[in-house]
Design a protein around this nucleic acid. Structure first.
Length: 636
RNA sequence: GCCCAUGUAGCUCAGUUGGUUAGAGCGCAUCCUUGGUAAGGAUGAGGUCGGCGGUUCAAAUCCGCUCGUGGGCUCCA
């Protein structure tokens, strides 16, 4: 007789499933979705046949949510099958937030269809259908799905090696599925179908385009409302919206999509970032380079770009019967500089950085505001070194990345090690060498990471660092790439201590990635309310009456001379309107000046948050401001 | 590139089944008001309704093509 441990108590179970067990001991099963039994995730309806410990899995855990959303996708598929006879089902997994299901249908779904499907799902939920698991012979499954006309399921079945497969029945709907699932559709309380999209079968653009429906569900209406509120908040801080409102940048789509125009207010932020960036590089032993934007096609043949990066490059320009290509990367140029003289081991490592503007052709459908563009400036660098120096240099770069990102208020990262892609240059042995160097450096730095199989650059593996913003979303910016191949192609070498030639090794790296993307991330992270050192306008002076015009101008000039970015609003408006405008522009500090301030020779300081301090001496204010700017303080 | 949605004033958006000189708010300009902590008032300028072609007595509205944008797929800093 199986012995069950649950909540540190022991029970003897004669027969039945987990559902029966919970019922027998009077446990509420409403919140329990599945169980973890001896480490395995099982349906509540699974029979208890061995001893073990039960851990209930609820919506509060990642595993619970996954099952919950996956089950909801089955409910959606059931609803779609009820409503539309001409639909073939494919797959419908849970994703990090919600679920989707891909359908094959001759005519795409419409927005109205979505509402209908949602209603039908609610019906199915109300009807309280059981999820019934069955294990059947694979051949029988093939017959069954064939009869149902579900070709995609047969394609999946043909790839399964086992003799038995599991299927789940939910009312009229039968799906090939590993499970586990919730026991009853009634456990889903609140659903919302979010968007329609096209998606290739198995993610391959050569395959048929399917109709994907995204949705999400929660065990409580309030959780759904919270989620929708969070989506709305993300919309509010969309960098495209804020970029327009705060006059930071624009695109001129009819004259070239994916190309960014930096307005004065965006450009000053970029200048501040660049100044900080250059200073930090000089401190850390880098030297600055400038290189051209184009080079003859021969250079790109030599680097391998014309064969391995062709898709991303703009077609050649003809000049003097020669073909020139606009650069998609800076590395070949830096290599050319390296090769202008014979290098000694004594010179290495050479750390060369450049704010290099590159152009890459991106498919029209992937362009997105500042995040995905066709022309951008990388904060690029190439480190030329000996093999012995490699590990330390990687560690140095990681340290620099965390320092720089911290300065902008990013403290959390996800780290990925990306390995050899399908299209790549160089021998497997060399790739392994490079990958090991990255792994060891990560281990030494004590950093945890995931592997991104096949995600490397064509010339070498890389570490990608994704930062988390204020809404916990991740963005890929920083990258460190180890390259043994490009030096090989260009015969990059140094003279060693032994007087012989040795192969130089290269690191390609970017901290911010590109100014465009990083700026987009920054805008969203701060919701447009930049710290003082970055704010396009740091202080606005707001006058209450024209009588104080001279006094205000005095203060304006005094701060302007000290290089504070300041504006004076003397306009014929009420103070309320001036405060509102300044606040909407997210200017960190307002100095409010009326007769009283003039008499006492002070100012009234109001932060954009609304917090206010009266009767402030102007020198005290300036000193406080200067400290915040110099220390790059994040809070105002 | 592919699927779906979409393009009206500088911005955000109305515009009913095709029917006179296409509307609103914000912003902008001018004037009045000199106002004490998130919108004072009045007047005015501003649009060949993304572009090209078609259907029609008549097109912002219907159709086709085209250039963009948004959400996805694929790809990436």
């Amino acid at each position: 007789m199986p012995k069950i441990i649950y909540k540190e108590k022991e029970y003897k179970v004669e027969s039945g499933n987990f559902l029966d067990f919970f019922k027998n001991i009077g446990e509420k099963i409403e919140d329990i979705l599945i169980v973890k039994f001896n480490g395995k995730l099982l349906d509540l309806t699974a029979q208890i046949s061995e001893s073990g410990e039960i851990v209930p899995v609820t919506f509060d855990s990642e595993e619970g949510r996954e099952v919950y959303w996956h089950s909801t996708s089955h409910i959606m598929a059931a609803a779609v099958k009820r409503l539309f006879k001409d639909v073939k089902v494919t797959i419908g997994p849970a994703i990090s937030e919600g679920f989707y299901y891909d359908f094959d249908r001759a005519t795409p779904f419409t927005e109205e269809d979505l509402l209908k499907i949602e209603k039908e799902m609610e019906k199915i939920i109300k009807e309280g259908h059981k999820f019934v698991r069955e294990e059947i012979d694979i051949e029988k499954a093939k017959d069954m799905f064939k009869k149902m006309g579900e070709d995609y399921k047969i394609e999946i079945l043909n790839e399964i090696k086992d003799n038995k497969v599991s299927i789940y029945k939910t009312e009229n709907f039968i799906d090939l599925c590993r499970g586990p699932h919730i026991d009853n559709s009634a456990k889903v309380k609140s659903i919302k179908l979010l968007k329609l999209a096209g998606a290739y079968w198995r993610g391959d653009e050569k395959n048929k385009m399917l109709q994907r429906i995204y949705g999400i569900s929660f065990p409580d209406k309030k959780l759904l409302d919270d989620y929708l509120k969070r989506l709305e908040e993300a919309r509010q801080r969309d960098h495209r919206k804020l970029g327009k409102e705060l006059d930071l940048f624009s695109t001129h789509d009819e004259f070239g999509p994916g190309l960014i125009y930096w307005h004065p207010k965006g450009a000053i932020i970029r200048k501040e970032i660049e100044d900080f960036w250059r200073e930090e590089h000089l401190k850390r032993g880098y030297e600055i380079l400038y290189t051209p934007h184009v080079a003859k096609i021969d250079l790109w043949h030599k680097s391998g770009h014309t064969s391995f990066y062709k898709e991303n490059m703009y077609p050649p320009m003809r000049m003097d019967e020669m073909e020139y290509l606009v650069k998609p990367m800076n590395c070949p140029f830096h290599i050319l500089i390296y090769k202008t003289s014979l290098r000694s081991y004594r010179e290495l490592p050479l750390r060369w950085c450049e704010l290099g503007t590159v152009y890459r052709y991106e498919k029209s459908g992937v362009l997105h505001g500042l995040m995905r563009v066709r022309g951008f400036t990388q904060d690029d660098a190439h480190i030329f070194m000996t093999e012995e120096q490699l590990e330390q240099e990687i560690i140095n770069v990681i340290d620099m990345i965390t320092f720089v990102l911290k300065t902008f208020g990013f403290y959390e990262y996800e780290i990925f090690l990306s390995t050899k892609p399908k299209d790549s240059i160089g021998e497997a042995r060399v790739w392994e060498l490079a990958e090991n160097a990255l792994k060891q450096a990560l281990a030494k730095a004590g950093l945890k990471y995931d592997i991104d199989e096949g995600g490397g650059a064509f010339y070498g593996p890389k570490i990608d660092i994704k930062i988390k913003d204020a809404l916990n979303r991740t963005w890929q910016c920083s990258t460190i790439q180890v390259d043994f191949n490009m030096p090989e192609r260009f015969d990059v070498k140094y003279i060693g201590e032994d007087g012989k030639e040795h192969r130089t090794i290269m690191i390609h790296r970017a901290l911010l990635g590109s100014f465009e993307r990083f700026f987009g991330v920054l805008i969203e992270h701060y919701k447009g309310a930049f710290p003082v050192w970055l704010s396009p306008i740091q202080v606005s002076i707001l006058t209450i009456t024209e009588r104080v015009k001279d006094y205000a101008e005095n203060i304006f000039n005094k701060l302007k001379e000290k290089k504070i970015r300041i504006i004076l609003n003397n306009a014929n408006e009420t103070i309320g309107a001036k405060i509102r405008n300044s606040t909407l522009q997210k200017i960190p500090f307002m100095l409010i000046i009326g007769d009283k301030e003039q008499q006492k020779n002070v100012v009234s300081v109001r932060k954009r948050s609304g917090e206010e301090q009266k009767d402030v001496n102007i020198d005290d204010f300036f000193n406080m401001l200067l400290k915040k700017i110099e220390q790059k303080e994040l809070d105002i």
